[in-house]
């Protein structure tokens, strides 16, 4: 059991990271922390994806003579796109936070809710 867990450590780590990120995003009222949680969650997913394509002892997927097994390049390629998406999401979220700070003078979601009050 333990050995199985250790051999699948990357999956376990990925899930732990995902949950930490998820938890941070939902429970923290600080907007910056929400964005950080979002990044942690996505990192967890990226790690998971990369692990799917990882072959123990495999070489990088470049055709060189004498290589035994290749690491599946597809997940890595996909995650490259995923990282781009994540970066743009982060950038956009941070830009919104800057605007929110300008409007409300705080980056705390609860305080913003209070300030908002009954506005429609």
């Amino acid at each position: 059991m333990i050995a199985k867990l250790i051999s699948n450590m990357h999956f376990l780590t990925a899930m732990v990271l995902f949950l930490i990120g998820f938890h941070t995003m939902l429970t923290h009222s600080n907007l910056i922390k929400k964005v950080m949680g979002m990044n942690i969650m996505e990192t967890g997913i990226f790690l998971f994806f990369i692990s799917v394509g990882y072959v123990r002892g495999g070489s990088s997927p470049i055709a060189v003579p004498g290589a035994e097994g290749y690491i599946n390049p597809l997940p890595s390629a996909l995650i490259l796109t995923g990282i781009v998406v994540s970066v743009s999401l982060t950038a956009f979220a941070l830009a919104l936070i800057v605007k929110l700070y300008n409007y409300y003078g705080t980056v705390d979601a609860d305080k913003i809710m209070q300030l908002r009050g009954g506005e429609e």
């Binding site: 995902f18 939902l26 979002m38």
Partner: peptide, 9 residues
């Protein structure tokens, strides 16, 4: 955005 990002994840 935050909820959508959660969904995307």
């Amino acid at each position: 955005l935050v909820l959508s990002a959660l969904g995307s994840g």
